[in-house]
Each structure stands twice: as C-alpha cells, then as structure tokens.
C-alpha cells in the first residue's frame, strides 16, 4: 500500500482527568473519504483540532505527506495543504463571500506582504475565487458579507475557501450541521466528487451522509477508536451498535 496522505499514531490529549484523545491511530489514504463518527463528547472535534494545529497533543505522531507536522502551527499546516472547515463557521464576517475566498487564493499564491496592488482589481485573485463560489453554488451571493449569509450558505462558503487552497487533504468538521435535508443532500453529492481531488477526513453526525459517502468509517467513543471498517462492517459491528447506534446487543 502506498503511504497514506495523513497518518496519526497513538495520539493522546487530556484535559485534566478527561482523556479526550486516548491513543488514537488512524490514517487517510488518497482518494478516500474516511468518516469519523461517535456520540457527542467522544472527542471528534478535539482530534480535528490536533490535526489542524489549533491544539497540541500530549503525545503521539501526526504525519502528513510523509512529514512529521507536530512542530508546525496551524498556518504552516494549511500551507502544506491541510484544509479544514469548522464545526461552527469561522469566516471573516465583514468581508463578502468573494473576499473570504480571495483570502485563500491569495494565501495559496504566496506571501501576503504585498502592499500596493488593489485586490479587487487583481484578476488572479477574483477569477479563481469566483470559480470556487460557482462550484459550491454561491456565485449569486458573491458580494454579500459573510455575516449576512444564511447558515447553510456559510457552510458552503467554508467549503469554497477550503477548495481554493488547492489542498492535499480536507478535514471537514460536521459540514452538514444545521443544513436542511435538501442542502445536506446537495452537499453529499458534492463531497462525493471531491474525493478525487483530495481525500477527506469527515466528522459527521448525519448517518445518511456518512453511509452514502464513506469508504471507511472509524467510530470514536470516549477518546478511543472502537472500530474501523467499511460501511457494512460498521453497521453490523455489535460493539458499535451497542455503544453508538444505541441498540441492545
């Protein structure tokens, strides 16, 4: 097997007595969608934060594209090609949708210490950004400030900015959260095509989406992965049914 794009080995993180991440190992192979499911408080977001660099693990290894990224901050990891979306949208609220995506395009092109050329007249920024908004179906709202977008639109905008980074892997933290059934269905179709561009580590509560999309599923309970396998294996795993799907064994 080729080396995985992202590999996590024996990751541990405690908050006081709470073991939020308790020896987690998993990997993300190219071309796959690896879903991470688990009940509330299982430590899914904590894990994503450690991978993206906003939290420092107590111990364990994170390798991305064959490189140990433990010492890199969030911005440096993003520059390597690790794009993330946030559980609750995290956008530049006063900027329009277009300018949010342009920020990602600008970051991808290199240094931001450029002081003279106006960004709104820079077609090397506006055109790729507009193309990304078109891909997620947000082109008609390009000039609306992020703060004035609907919840679902902000989720789409998060995806568009992640796309604009031209990433080597996506970390998507509950992209469907708060979306209506129609929006969730559209986004499911969209993510399905996205795995060709870069593999996705997907944290999601929407089981329809997970079972429709995932090549592999890992189940996280109390900071530990209790099972990893394809959709059918997970559906039929008695321990998973007991711990998470809420059925008697």
């Amino acid at each position: 097997m080729a080396e995985p794009v992202l590999e996590i080995r024996d990751l541990k993180k405690s908050f006081g007595a709470l073991k939020a991440t308790d020896g987690v190992s998993l990997h993300l192979a190219s071309g796959e969608i690896h879903a991470l499911i688990g009940p509330n408080g299982a430590g899914k977001s904590t894990l994503i934060h450690q991978i993206s660099g906003s939290l420092t693990p107590d111990s364990g290894k994170i390798r991305f594209l064959g490189q140990d990224i433990a010492g890199l901050d969030m911005a440096a990891r993003a520059r390597l090609g690790l794009a993330r979306s946030f559980q609750t949208s995290s956008l530049a609220q006063e900027f329009s949708a277009l300018r949010n995506v342009m920020l990602a395009v600008q970051a991808r092109q290199g240094t931001s210490l450029r002081f003279f050329r106006p960004v709104m007249r820079d077609r090397s920024l506006t055109e790729p950004a507009m193309a990304m908004l078109e891909r997620v179906g947000l082109a008609g709202r390009a000039h609306v400030p992020a703060a004035e977008l609907s919840h679902g639109e902000r989720r789409q905008l998060e995806i568009a900015t992640a796309l604009a980074l031209g990433p080597k892997a996506f970390l998507l933290d509950e992209p469907m959260a708060g979306m209506g059934p129609e929006g969730a269905k559209n986004l499911t179709g969209f993510l399905d095509t996205l795995r060709q561009e870069a593999p996705i580590l997907l944290v999601e509560h929407d089981m329809d989406a997970v079972f429709a999309l995932a090549d592999r599923v890992s189940v996280l309970v109390y900071g530990r992965i209790i099972a990893t396998g394809d959709v059918d294996e997970i559906r039929n795993d008695p321990e998973v049914r007991r711990a998470y799907l809420g059925e008697p064994a």
């Binding site: 993206s52 906003s54 901050d73 969030m74 911005a75 440096a76 993003a78 520059r79 794009a83 993330r84 946030f86 995290s90 956008l91 530049a92 609220q93 006063e94 900027f95 300018r99 949010n100 342009m102 920020l103 990602a104 600008q106 970051a107 991808r108 931001s112 210490l113 450029r114 002081f115 003279f116 050329r117 106006p118 960004v119 709104m120 820079d122 920024l125 900015t161 604009a164 980074l165």
Partner: peptide, 23 residues
C-alpha cells in the same frame, strides 16, 4: 486595498480564519 490589507483586516475579524488559509 492591498493583499496585506486584506490579511490585516481578516486578522482583526477572525485570526483563526487567517491561520486556516495558511497566513
């Protein structure tokens, strides 16, 4: 209006967003 200004204003509005795109 420059790239620098865009990054600077984003840093005010949401530094996490800025770091998430790699700046």
């Amino acid at each position: 209006n420059s790239r620098f200004g865009a990054a600077l204003q984003a840093a005010r509005q949401n530094p996490t967003r800025l770091a998430a795109v790699g700046i």
